[in-house]
Design a protein around this nucleic acid. Sequence first.
DNA 1: GCATTGCATTCGTCAAAACGTATATATATA
DNA 2: TATATATATACGTTTTGACGAATGCAATGC
Lengths: 138, 138
Amino acid sequence: MTTKEGFCFERFFQALGDNTRLRLLNLMGDQDLCVCYFVEVLNQPQPKISRHLAYLRSAGLVHARRDGKWMHYRIVMPRNECARRVLQELFRHFKEEKVMLADHAKLTKACSAPEKFVTLQGAPIPTPVASSPVFASR
Amino acid sequence: MTTKEGFCFERFFQALGDNTRLRLLNLMGDQDLCVCYFVEVLNQPQPKISRHLAYLRSAGLVHARRDGKWMHYRIVMPRNECARRVLQELFRHFKEEKVMLADHAKLTKACSAPEKFVTLQGAPIPTPVASSPVFASR
DNA sequence: GCATTGCATTCGTCAAAACGTATATATATA
DNA sequence: TATATATATACGTTTTGACGAATGCAATGC
């Protein structure tokens, strides 16, 4: 069951139905991040993070880009208008949720001083992404 | 991971991550329906329908009310504002989706002439529900 | 009380998904 | 070429969820 554009809400909501994936999306709100930041901020095993990122990718919610040794992930705004709005609402909500705010705070700290984190030695600094849910208009 | 109000987005999205449940919610858009209508419109086994309704109930998305032999189900608008908006967007979208429109058309037909459907003999007519996603303001 | 009706639940099976652990792959670097 | 690093994937296990088929249960009507 998909829309004319081929969008599948079932799959979309399944992808959102996991707290780890919600936290990953929250971190990608407006930037292009490499895996080590997710691992550092969520403080969870790297294979677990990679698997959830792969799931998000297979659902079409994120895009992966290779940059030397690093893989950067960013959100792909769906073409389906309803799904886009859902993501926008969700990101508006993240700004009021404790865990999500704390994750963002930790990410900001990590980005401003990556040398202080063992796992982030030499990691590329995240780059802003314009077409993201946090910059979306309403 | 829940909000201060105790709302769990993980569970919420899991509940939305199934096409049968999305179709059930669509039918409940603005009325209080008994199980036989879901069975008739979706044309699927009654235990399957009941199980999905139970899932939606356990996730807090619907409320069940007994009326003699019949069980009526209706949507419960979440207290969480983000979740409410997500449901509203979803219902706006349903009005543009073929399957959902067809289901609604079949439901309307069934309601206007229940005697013509074998499974609906004596079934109570659905009753409108005011606090529903389709009547929600934007 | 007994049968019928409307619905829920149980049971067994299968598939999907989540996880930790281990290992493979790709790139960079010495 | 050999090694280190960043990330992905495979493996085995456990949990969750979906399903059809059968059964249970509550309310009604005789």
